[in-house]
């Protein structure tokens, strides 16, 4: 592209052999990183270098590399998904950094997200929360009612979509000083609470999902708003408030 600039950087990366062993921050030097590279391409380059030096490459989660699958994580220079907003780590580019920079790369830190290896964490707690109630209990059927039989106000549908845009990456948990998962759970609860199809089970859903969330060992929301800022999809705090409302309603039933 236009630039063609390269930079030399120092990396401080969390290395941990497996879930049981203790880890530590290790330092690496990486030269000739194109500023057009994405952050993960920079890590690819580091791994290529490590493999060529017969050292073990750094394990990190990634898949789609276009900001939608939610698999990539990484706490970069003290921020979830690094020093840019509205993006995932795979969309972070090296032009955000300067020649000679030291970059800290750490895994998500949360009791509910134990480290598997290096920068890879286990986020299946999110799956279990979903399994506890993040669905509409409708079986597959060729005889559901016509999709247009139940009109949904556009504003509700739009808000439900905005909540449903969550990619389940866990940046909210990682960035929250309390390790709270309320933005994730709030988004799921909201998506269904806003749609008539989801309202039927709203009571059970919010109680079950919150119970599971608490069992997983996530912290509590103290409304710092950090999650909203770091969320790559800009999920709003309104969703947490909606969950709080739904939970209150459900608890009083």
């Amino acid at each position: 592209m236009a630039s063609k600039k390269t930079i030399n950087i120092n990396l401080k990366i969390w290395r941990q052999k497996n879930a049981k062993e203790k880890g530590s921050m290790e330092t690496y030097k990486l030269d000739n990183v194109s500023t057009d590279s994405s952050f993960l391409e920079m890590l690819d380059q580091l791994n290529e270098q490590l493999v060529n030096e017969r050292k073990e490459p750094v394990a990190f989660d990634h898949d789609c590399r276009e900001g939608i699958c939610g698999m990539c994580s990484l706490y970069i220079n003290g921020r979830a998904h690094g020093p840019d907003t509205g993006i995932t780590t795979c969309q972070l580019h090296m032009r955000m950094f300067n020649d000679g920079d030291t970059i800290y790369v750490e895994p998500w830190r949360s009791k509910a997200f134990p480290v598997i290896k290096d920068l890879v964490v286990d986020r299946s707690a999110f799956d279990r929360i979903q399994q506890a109630g993040g669905f509409v209990s409708v079986n597959t059927s060729g005889r559901t009612i016509d999709a247009n039989a139940t009109p949904v106000p556009k504003t509700d549908a739009d808000k439900a979509f905005e909540a449903a845009a969550c990619i389940g990456c866990g940046a909210c948990v990682a960035t929250c000083k309390n390790g709270s998962a309320m933005l994730f759970v709030g988004a799921k609860v909201s998506q269904y609470a806003l749609l008539p199809q989801g309202r039927v089970e709203a009571t059970e859903r919010v109680l079950n999902m919150v119970r599971q969330m608490d069992e997983e060992g996530f912290g509590n929301c103290t409304n710092t708003g950090a999650c909203e800022i770091e969320c790559p999809k800009g999920i709003s705090l309104e969703n947490i408030a909606r969950m709080n409302r739904e939970y209150l309603k459900a608890s009083l039933k």
Partner: peptide
Amino acid sequence: IDQCVAQGVPFAR
């Protein structure tokens, strides 16, 4: 489409 709407997929409206 019917199935997905019943599942709570928020299609554009």
